[in-house]
Amino acid sequence: MAHILDDYAVLSPLRYKNNWLKIAIVTFGLLAGVSSNSPLVPFLIAICMSFATLYFAKVPASFYFRILAAPAGFVIVSVVIIAFFFGEGAKLFSFDVFGLTLGVSKAGLDMALLVFARTLGGMSCLFFLSLTTPMIELFSVLKATKLPDSFLEIAMMMYRYIFVFLDVAVGVKYAQSVRLGYKDFKTSFRSMVMLGTNLFIRSWEQGEKIYVSMNARCYDGKLILLDDKRPVEMPELMLTLAYFALVVLTFYFTRTVSVL
């Protein structure tokens, strides 16, 4: 079963910091990373955000690097394809496969490096948000937007039931595997079908039950959410501004570095 990053967020020392500040930091990093022309900017963002996640949010380093490697499969394959097929000009090296000449050009290699850096920078920003801010905190931010109530309500109830069903799924899977339900391909397929069906039927019945129980408690189509005020503290603000300034300066000085 996959790691739920939310578990770390709930216990995070940064949990009760201002949500808008955290979102501003992450949005800034994502946008700066994706629009930069030099791999230096995303690398810098990756270093800063990883430092913040490991040092301020006290996420165990071994866990952090393991989840950072999660996109590795997809990224490595795609980056290799980009390196081989993107860009023209002199090939740095090339070889023949079945009469086809495959080569890596300077432009292709630069592009591949840039895409790799952007993904690394982007993922570290995303991890900072998801490892320090539980979804409950983000709901109050979403409430402030103009999204329809029914959408937010479904999102909130879905959040709750993800954990309920994950528990059921983990339990059933455990019970199946101790009965050798995953001993070979055929049995694991059969077990998986039974798990899926059971989950579907259980979730359906659960949905009917919640409606009845919510109705009994005067549910009128609105879930009210209260959030408390959390002012931004001076040291946090200074640190954030210093980070912004550093990234903007790097962005400015590397803007002419054309890797394309």
Partner: peptide, 12 residues
């Protein structure tokens, strides 16, 4: 509403 919410959780 609750049915769609549990359906979404099921997909997840």
């Amino acid at each position: 509403v609750p049915l769609l919410a549990v359906a979404g959780a099921f997909i997840f």
